[in-house]
Amino acid sequence: MTEALVLQSDFGVSDGAVSAMYGVAHSINPSIRIFDLTHDIPPFHIWEASYRLVQTVPYWTGQTVFVSVVDPGVGSNRKSVVARTRANQYVITPDNGTLTHLCQAGLIAEVRQLDDHKHRLPHMGESYTFHGRDIFAFTGARLSSHAITFEDVGPLLPLEEIVLLDRTPAQRQGDHTIGIVEILDIRFGNVWTNIPVSLVREAGIDIGSRVTVTVDHRGRTIYEQSLLFGRSFADVPIGSGVVYINSLDQVAIALNQGSFAHAYEIGIGNDWRIYLKTK
């Protein structure tokens, strides 16, 4: 049986890069089943690639193989790795921080260094700039087709040696619950934080509460307003703000039928702090 092969990259689909990865996979196994996670990761944005994996991987079956290629260090001495999750999915990626969210969520069981001298497209030429095609898609197709095993890809690496991004955890501090903007729900402009539902419950925040929301960027207040903590967007009038629990059970902020991120020019990462305080 051929396992699903799921591809993610920052390549976009306006040229032939993604199609070339498909072609390599089909050359390994014409019956291979390929799915796209996304190819719209902003160029070089490892943080977003990491988040999209933790958003997606848990909902796929065991043995699914993911290939994630956001690789500003391509051709350098950075490692290539294959991670096995606790649910026995596999993630093939550069060791550049892409595994951060999966690791910190406790979903990674073990990681092997990919021997990319051994596992590479035959006759790949002298280019060192398209490992997504020549190494990652090639290895992903072979792993998903059972032409190689996880143990074949290379030696085990200690989990503590895996490159992780600097990511500030959510916390309670006095009467504030504090987190960061993890990601944007891009199409709709909702702002997703890293504050888990458990923290807001500890703070006594529940459906129907009024919450003072402050968005801070490098010490400058970008937004501050009292909002309803609702079940969904429809709990407030069109154009009004609402705090809610998103599909990953974390706090998010939205405008009903509007883009909160666009309206207030919100970015993502540790520099973007969210403070919640009950009235």
Rank of each mutant, 00 (worst) to 15 (best):
Q55F: 03
M124V: 08
H123V: 10
N29I: 03
E110N: 10
I178D: 05
I238E: 09
E182Y: 09
D185I: 12
E161R: 15
V111I: 15
L228N: 10
R52S: 03
Q250D: 15
P122E: 10
R187K: 11
L165R: 10
D152Q: 07
S9L: 06
D216M: 11
I178H: 02
V70P: 02
R218N: 14
D206H: 13
R220N: 13
E202T: 04
N77R: 14
R210C: 10
R52P: 02
R273D: 02
P122G: 13
Y59K: 06
L37S: 00
V81G: 04
E265V: 04
S14H: 15
G219D: 04
P237N: 07
P94S: 01
S14C: 13
T100N: 09
L159M: 10
P155Q: 08
W272S: 00
M21W: 02
V197S: 15
S145F: 04
L159F: 07
R86K: 12
R142P: 02
R33Q: 15
Y128A: 02
F35Y: 11
R84W: 05
V18Q: 08
E151T: 09
Q225W: 08
T129P: 02
N256A: 06
D271S: 05
G106N: 03
V69H: 08
W47P: 04
I238Q: 10
I178L: 13
Y90K: 01
V191W: 00
L53D: 02
I183N: 03
T149L: 07
I180H: 00
Q171K: 15
L255P: 07
K279F: 08
L114N: 03
D40C: 07
V91P: 01
L143H: 01
D36H: 00
F136H: 03
G12D: 03
T221V: 12
A261F: 03
I238L: 12
I178C: 01
V18P: 04
V200S: 08
F138N: 03
Q171T: 15
D115K: 06
R167S: 13
Y51L: 13
G23M: 04
G208V: 08
M124G: 12
P155F: 09
T2E: 06
R172V: 14
S80Y: 07
H45N: 03
E160H: 14
A109L: 15
P122T: 13
Y223G: 09
D216R: 04
N77D: 14
R187P: 11
F150C: 12
S76N: 06
T139G: 11
T61S: 12
